[in-house]
Amino acid sequence: MQNPDDDKPNGVSDLARRRFLKGLAVSAGAAGAVSASGGAWGGSTLSDAFADFFQQHYQRMSADEIATTIERIERKAKRRYGVDITCANTPPQDGVVFGYAINISKCRGYRDCVHACVEENNLGRDTQYIRVVELDRGSTDLHHADHYYDHAEVPRPGKDYLPMQCMHCDNPPCVKACPVEATWTEPDGIVVVDYDWCIGCRYCMAACPYQARHFNWGTPEIPAAELNPDTHYLGNRPRPRGVVEKCHFCVQRTRTGRQPACQEACPTGARVFGNLLDPNSEIRYVLENKAVFRLKEDLGTEPKFWYYRDA
């Protein structure tokens, strides 16, 4: 369902590729040993380090290969954190394209969403997918935004608060930039990253006009007790060091019908999430009846992330 390649009659080249990779696997023992001994790649056993090294692109794996990979991911998480996680591979639903809208009049800058996201998505504790900035009322000039506001009380008079995260552009510059196709748009509109395919060149970070992508400069530090065990392959599974990650609209939740964690955490109801293809959805009502705008629309990125104000 996930692998368009599966349907294509390219079995021969696939087989050849795998044979070649197997050959490499045998001959590249030294590299694997280094990986394992360094602890750099998540404290794997030798065989897991091999399997990691030769793991294929998500879209190129067969169902069996994905199952084995997921098993390994769960095993590694157990070894690393002592926690039993489940790594789902829930496919996108038909007829669903996700969109998000934020009511700036309602956002009060509490940053509840930011921290709910950190917890839900097993972010390294120095990373935040969501950035809430403080702006002068009515302005959207990000160059005069305060990113680090820390008042005793928010909202401050005369200020607006604008949360930003991955906009899941319909024409994403980051996807175009990636030299190895480690990031792509899923059928439900979510721009995802295969953390096991990313080479860490960070060109996508240079390409993103919304500063939505984050790099694991070191191995992400997550307290084991706070690890969220409900994960998804393309979502919040524990990430290795040296790869890029970003908001994925809580794919582990939203593909099963749940709201993303930021929406759930928002105490003011400023966040509206839903299916853009469903004419009766809340998001469609907002888009059709509110004066919505998007950030940096002039760049042609077509974000699926809108903002509106109460009239």
Binding site: R17, F20, L21, L24, A31, S35, W41, F53, H57, R60, K176, A177, C178, P179, V180, E181, A182, W197, C198, I199, G200, C201, R202, Y203, F215, N216, P240, R241, G242, V243, V244
Partner: peptide
Amino acid sequence: LGRPDRFWHLIPGIGRFNFPES
């Protein structure tokens, strides 16, 4: 590179090369 060990992902054929987009 963050993951020099994955350099082979760049090799056309066995890797996945985003040409000509990237």
